[in-house]
């Protein structure tokens, strides 16, 4: 069964050999996972969020395990775009698998400069615009919570990177996710990925301290799957551009559920921590899972949720 997928954008399409991507921040630069599978067997690799300059990230503890999930407040620690382009990208099998670079900046202008820098990199297939990081003091979440700001960032990236597919990652920490989705679609986004982490908190009762140094962080993992599924369902009905589902996906059945709700592709995030071959095995098992659930094609399944 052919499980290849084309994300038809308003400006640039993104062709994937299968609908399984990795989620930013859970798969390093991809190279960390070569002992666990063949990167070229994935639909795409979304690498750890990059900024124009290196960022040290937040103090530890930055991660804490919760029931069926985890909180993180890593704070976008990364080596900066130049180190990525010089040292990491050339080592990735980008001719065989779509490399999608997650980008973060603190201003619209900085987003544009970062996008322009990556537009010239042949190995980069797409940009995923992070307008929804809950863990940095300036930016991220603010861009993603205001339709005007989200649109401004999207427009700037769209114009600065005319050769790249532009995917915008949406935050669930909003009153109405569809209004943000429509705003970024109108601003030229080629696709949207939903969702980023859900803002949460854990405390250490005996110590009477927050579990994270940042106090609050982003919840991910199976615990947020129902939230993500709801967001994908709502957004897929609100926009025409493709929706990429992300949030608690750990197996082929989960992936098919998101496609049923309207997603064209999915991202595996915290699943890669549960088992490092999670994305690889999910991609390998997808055809058999389709057969098991009577799915004749992903197009047929997509959005076929019965409401009667």
């Amino acid at each position: 069964m052919d499980i290849s997928v084309t994300l038809r954008g308003q400006t640039r399409d993104l062709v994937l050999k299968n609908p399984v991507l990795t989620a930013s921040g859970t798969f390093g630069n991809g190279l960390e996972f070569t002992p666990y599978g063949d990167l070229a067997s994935l639909g795409g690799i979304v690498v750890k969020g990059l900024s124009l300059e290196p960022r040290p990230g937040n103090p530890c503890p930055r991660i804490v395990e919760t029931v069926a999930g985890m909180l993180n407040a890593v704070g976008l620690q990364n080596d900066g775009v130049e180190v990525f382009c010089r040292e990491k990208l050339p080592a990735l099998p980008w001719r065989e698998v779509a490399v999608i670079v997650n980008i973060y900046a603190a201003s619209v202008d900085e987003f544009a400069r970062l996008a322009a820098r990556l537009d010239g990199e042949e190995g980069v297939a797409a940009l995923e615009v992070n307008v929804s990081c809950p863990n940095v003091a300036h930016g991220g979440a603010l861009f993603g919570q205001d339709p005007l700001q989200a649109a401004a960032v999207t427009r700037a990236v769209r114009e600065a990177a005319p050769r790249k597919h532009v995917m915008v990652k949406l935050s669930p920490n909003v009153t109405d996710i569809t209004s943000i989705a429509r705003a970024v679609e109108d601003a030229g986004a080629d696709s949207v990925s939903c969702i980023n982490t859900v803002l949460g908190m854990a405390v250490d009762l005996p110590a009477r301290r927050p579990a994270l140094a940042n106090v609050v962080g982003g919840l991910s993992g199976p615990a947020i799957k129902p939230v993500a599924l709801r967001c994908v369902w709502q957004v897929a009905r609100a926009v025409k551009i493709p929706v990429i589902g992300v949030g608690g996906i750990v197996c082929a059945r989960d992936a098919l559920e998101f496609i049923l709700a309207g997603a064209r592709a999915v991202q595996v995030g915290t699943g890669s921590f549960i088992r490092p071959d999670c994305a690889f095995s999910l991609a390998a098992e997808l055809p058999a899972a389709c057969e098991q659930f009577g799915v004749t094609s992903l197009d047929e399944l997509r959005g076929s949720l019965r409401l009667d």
């Binding site: 921040g25 996972f33 002992p35 666990y36 750890k48 530890c60 991660i63 985890m70 890593v74």
Partner: peptide, 13 residues
């Protein structure tokens, strides 16, 4: 403290 053991979660820095 670490989640992945392979350098991806950045929890053990």
């Amino acid at each position: 403290r670490m989640a992945c053991g392979v350098g991806a979660c950045l929890g053990c820095v």
